[in-house]
Amino acid sequence: MQALLNYLQAHFLSESQLLHRSGLSRERLAQLQREGRTPLPSYALRCSGVVASYFGEQALDDELAWYPLATAEWLIEAQRADVAALRARFERRYRAEWARLAAQGLADAADGCLDAEWAHFLAGTYGVCTRHGRVEEIAAKSAAVGLIDRLTACQTRAALPADELALLRRAVDVLDEAAALFAPHERAASSRERCVNQARRQYLGDAA
């Protein structure tokens, strides 16, 4: 539990921190979430137990919500724009980052299913698996994971030619910058473990 709390405190905003930074009430945040204008928390930590002190024991039963750092930035726009405008803003930023990577050979021509990406964004999914929950990181992660899995055939190819190894290294570096470190209990099954750590060990000869 302590390792998880340390991770969340180092890389996320608690709900109270997010509310303080944005100047919102808890009720207003919940309204924006219901309307599909801002993401749900990426982590919800349910706490049940007993706290003991000089004053005796007290039962605890609470839920703590944690948000990626970029949520505070997103809320600035979410408070004054409707869902359609926010969805369009997400798409513009996503497509711009994808096009930037595609120009470098680091993304396929198509830029993925944006309806699914938007849904995952609102669900808080990308707060779990990107560094800060920024739209550009979401696009970079999706592009890099797709390229790495294609080049390695999901780590089943025995070896890669030199040009593909060079491309793989660049894609791994992009993902390393965009992907979250992941909570301790998630790391072994994460995309970072498969597409960064394992790819470096198996193909690039790097220590993960």
Rank of each mutant, 00 (worst) to 15 (best):
F121L: 13
F121P: 00
H20K: 15
Q17F: 03
Y67V: 04
S22I: 04
E63C: 14
A30N: 12
H185W: 08
R194E: 05
P161R: 08
L8T: 07
R192G: 02
Y54V: 12
R131P: 01
R89V: 04
N197S: 09
A171E: 00
M1D: 12
A207M: 07
A30W: 08
Y203R: 02
A78C: 10
Q198M: 04
A30K: 13
L168T: 00
A188I: 09
L19F: 06
L86H: 06
A102S: 13
L45M: 08
E57Y: 09
R95K: 15
Q198I: 04
A159V: 10
A162S: 15
L29W: 03
A123G: 11
L19C: 06
L75Y: 05
L64F: 05
P184K: 09
A99D: 13
G23W: 12
R95Q: 09
A10D: 14
D176A: 13
A103V: 05
G105Q: 11
E35G: 08
A162K: 15
R200T: 02
R150F: 01
S48Y: 12
A183S: 07
A59Y: 10
E97S: 06
A72L: 10
A171C: 04
L24T: 07
R80Q: 14
A119H: 11
E91A: 15
T71C: 12
A99H: 08
L114K: 02
A109S: 14
R187C: 02
S25R: 13
D111Q: 12
D176N: 12
Y94A: 08
Q2D: 13
S191W: 01
Y43R: 05
Y203G: 00
D115R: 11
E91F: 05
G105V: 03
F90A: 05
A158W: 05
I76T: 14
R169Q: 15
